[in-house]
Amino acid sequence: MAVKFGKQSYKLSGRIYINETACIVGPREKEGPLGEYFDQVEREDYGEDTWEKGEAHYIEATFNKLMGKISLDTKQIDCVFSGDLLNQCMASAIGLKNSNVPFLGLYGACSTMAESMLCASLCMDSNAMTDTIAITSSNFCSAEKQYRFPLELGGQRTPTSQWTVTASGAVYLSCNKSGAVEELKPYIESVTIGKIENYKINDVNNMGAVMAPACASTILSHLRDLSRTPDYYDLILTGDLGYTGSKILLEIMSMHGNDISTRHNDCGKMIFDSASQDTKSGGSGCGCAAAVFTSYIYKLLKNLNLRRVLFVATGALISPVMVKQGEDLLAISHGISIEI
């Protein structure tokens, strides 16, 4: 059973294995530096006539891909924890309508991958569930329509703006290790639930700056709750702060006496080559952290190139209505410690 440490962290029993992952990305992501690690590449609309249906198709296809890899019947999955960026988690609902698996929809903006894995692992550690799937998606085109402007409207992006990643990533979590007995599998060691942070950055084109304090807050709380120092981890992988947010994060962390610069990397920085792909500050969206974690990082873990990873996905809790009504831009971040 999970044991609470400090105010925000829970240490798990060490048997929540990440047995398998799957991910499907769009063409731009495939062209990026991590292109070779993704399972499959599809057009951004996935052959559908609307962006929303396209994103739902991403979720459905990723779910099916994962089910194919683990060769389990859907009846054996206790629950799927899913989220995306669209209104009322539309893509998740449409994408999983035929899955015949109990469904919990989550919204944590770009932090949803960590949120879904966190919720799933806590449900499993209480012995209520044994097999779950955590899945998220985002889509550049549907996100532009939802949060910004029509695609064909001319305009410029500022240097701090981020590019929504078109991707869907899924993990299969189980209390039973799959594969050969001697094979090592990454497992979720502890989790930290983040608090909402509000540092009154009112620029919607600078999400990195909006989210960086929430990310620092969660990392600091995690380290303090479990009495650890940053060098406990081989890698502190933040969600999608991009170049701007990453720089700010390092500055806040060193202000609070923790230098993480040698072991920090950011999914938003990793997924695109900003210089040649003109993605400004980097990638964002729930698909960003999901795609990077389920492909490249999972592979490094399985090959024992990394043994301890703190995965901290960050999200900006905003809606277009909030922005128009002049509310502060809020941010959240959840942490998961993964070991092998």
Binding site: D45, F140, L151, E152
Partner: peptide, 10 residues
């Protein structure tokens, strides 16, 4: 335009 053309990703 809305009938004959479709928006494209960048």
């Amino acid at each position: 335009a809305s009938i004959v053309s479709k928006p494209k990703s960048k």
